[in-house]
Design a protein around this nucleic acid. Structure first.
Lengths: 117, 117
DNA sequence: GTATTACTTAGACTATACTGTAAGTCAATA
DNA sequence: TATTGACTTACAGTATAGTCTAAGTAATAC
């Protein structure tokens, strides 16, 4: 699969795919004339990267995860530990959002009362 | 209150306070020799800005809110509308985090099974 | 055989949100 | 009076995460 095809399938720009490669999130083999060729399972890997990123993991931490992943199955315990740590982060985020929603709702109520006075 | 005092009370650096002022989030009066002097209620305003920022509102949107706020009570309906819109955003974020937690949990389960095989 | 398209690289540019520096002012204190 | 410390300004620098450009190559399409 070429970079253009992968870009369409994942909805991630070619620029970004190359950028991720430079940042070592992605390891890509080349064809005979030096063009990137991606494997099918790179798609799910990229979606996984996307999820980690969207849930606030920094690229440099994703890079660490990627390095372990490319090292093979022996690094599973380490990867598991990283995910468990990230899980704690997500739980904290959830609590944060719940609290802010409560806050915002009381602000909204206040405004509504003020306006209807 | 001087900028140094406000900085300590809000735990926001003087740099940032000046930056917020330049970005029109904050309007500050000056003393006789040109130094910033803040009012007591600037503290709660800053904490509110902090909350909006922490919940993903961009400074340029917070600036819009600030402008309305400094315009006076007549802009309450507009501010309310902004907060209600932001509420929808927060609800969407909450759903996102819940979904990602579910995803992550199944990934974690998978790893745990693999490791214990 | 040339035009088009898809690719390559390095490196410059962008946006957001700060963060820090340099040079100078002012008022209170030793 | 001289120094200290908190303040002022404009502007440069940083980090993160892209986003784009310029110059060039290779394979295919007409």
């Amino acid at each position: 699969m070429t970079i253009g095809e992968l870009s369409k399938k994942t909805n991630i720009s070619e620029y970004t795919l190359r950028y991720y490669e430079k940042k070592r999130l992605l390891r890509v083999s080349r064809d005979r004339i030096g063009r990137r060729c991606y494997a099918e399972n790179d798609i799910s890997w990229i979606f996984f990267i996307k999820r980690l990123k969207d849930t606030g993991m920094l690229l440099k931490d994703i890079e660490k995860y990627a390095e372990l992943r490319y090292e093979g199955d022996s690094t599973m315990p380490e990867r598991l530990a990283m995910l468990q740590e990230h899980r704690v982060y997500i739980l904290r985020e959830q609590r944060k959002w719940a609290e802010y929603l409560k806050n915002l709702d009381s602000k909204i109520s206040f405004y509504q009362e003020e306006i209807n006075k």
